[in-house]
Design a protein around this nucleic acid. Structure first.
Lengths: 243, 243
DNA sequence: TCGATTTATACTCAGGTTGAGCATAAGTAA
DNA sequence: TTACTTATGCTCAACCTGAGTATAAATCGA
């Protein structure tokens, strides 16, 4: 993109370019575990395998805009917290042609995740199986809710693995945990989400103390309804405590 | 990249594609401050401005390979720790045409940084000015060693800002600090590197204790030479203590 | 040669954070 | 009314961090 090419009268349009796509990792909590939405491929290439929703980037379209378009059109989801994850550029990652893909992470509250799942017939929820193995986590695999393994297309298992890793890394010092919860939530729910992302249990009192001291959550005044026993306080995420 | 396009007999080669490039943020320590290598643009577009070394991605070339090629050919550097940073895809980020750029972070030891600087006439070292403003850091600006401001081309100031932010975020739990140091180093040098990255001073005894307890460094048995006063122990990075 | 100077390293202590356990509160169901 | 279960609050020991002080190891100048 600099001098020598232009000095030589270089015209990049004359060269073969990789195709550019975005792929979305739509994550949510399901049955207390970390899950991602997958689409069943019906085309000849890798038909029957499960893949992340994706699409090509338009010539006059931002990467973020492409990701949002795929979110709407392919996954049928209105709004989600979108964040760029990583760009995958192995030469043979797609057998059809050279496709470089910018992976995005989208976080859905439990209800929105379930709703998306009900909307698309070709959609499924992949429960992510991630051995703990320290902060980084080991290799990821995907399975159905019943425990049957899901075969993933292309390099999408690597993309899922990185998504989990990123989520874990950002858990402690950003608001990613709240993005997976409804607007009002209990401390127990918040802890369950953190535990699901970490893949390891948390100390209860230490977790509550830390969350309350941090100033990121505020009491709503309301309490949980319909519980069999003592109802928990409902909190909301308080963005003003972020800084 | 999925069904509908292929059902409709979609041929992605027929569509206009964004050009795909890599840009390198080559970081090192210079005069005790965080610095990056920049190239002076001599072409009509943004001539005279300073830019990150970059180049287009070949059709049969991995992103990592493209980054390494640019490292050799444009910056004249043999080896560095390369790591993908972020992909920049604003539609008008390059006025010539639509170019999506995958930014890479390369970390150089002080000696390699100085050597690269001596090799290329069009190269300069940009000292990065980053107000502290908490963990995230404020907006970055670049200046020469004498304090004169450097005008940057395209969106490269954003790329630099993100590089600094990433470096800060990874400082505490990865080995990025060591990548900026020679093989053998003193605890003081290590602390100076950390302070330069953070943009804020560190508690001396707490830093030493933390580093030694962490098990990432090992004594070499040798000591610093040529110092006016008590010579410090020389350490080396011990990768075996990482896990 | 010896003391002044400067930096490296070691040690101690107070304050804050974390993990763990126990006591009390607040609901439902029998 | 009592049993049961979960939420919330309190305490304590272990650990980590920031800060200060003391000692060690080198050079330099008188």
């Amino acid at each position: 993109m600099t001098e020598p090419e232009f000095l030589a009268g270089y015209d990049p349009a004359a060269y073969d370019r990789p195709a550019l796509a975005v792929d979305l990792v739509l994550m949510g909590i399901r049955a207390g575990r970390l899950a991602a939405l997958l689409l069943r491929r019906s085309q000849q290439q890798q038909a029957g395998l499960w893949a992340l929703p994706g699409g090509f980037v338009g010539i006059a379209e931002t990467l973020d805009a492409a990701a949002e378009r795929v979110l709407h059109d392919k996954a049928g989801i209105g709004r989600a917290r979108l964040e760029q994850l990583y760009t995958f550029g192995a030469v043979d990652r797609d057998p059809r042609m050279r496709i470089v893909s910018v992976a995005y992470l989208a976080l859905l509250p439990e209800a929105a995740f379930a709703e998306a799942l009900a909307g698309g017939a070709a959609l499924t929820a992949a429960m992510l199986v991630v051995p703990w193995a320290g902060e980084a986590g080991g290799p990821v695999s995907a399975e159905t809710e019943d425990g049957a393994p899901l075969a993933l297309a292309f390099d999408h298992v690597d993309i899922l693995a990185l998504a989990v890793k990123r989520l874990r890394g950002k858990l402690d010092y950003t608001d990613v945990g709240f993005a997976l919860l409804p607007e009002h939530f209990t401390l127990r729910q918040l802890q369950d989400v953190h535990a699901a992302i970490r893949g390891a249990p948390l100390n209860k009192s230490a977790f509550r103390r830390r969350m309350r001291d941090r100033g990121w959550i505020a009491l709503t005044g309301a309490r949980e309804a319909g519980t069999a026993f003592r109802p928990a306080e409902l909190f909301r995420f308080d963005r003003s405590g972020q800084f």
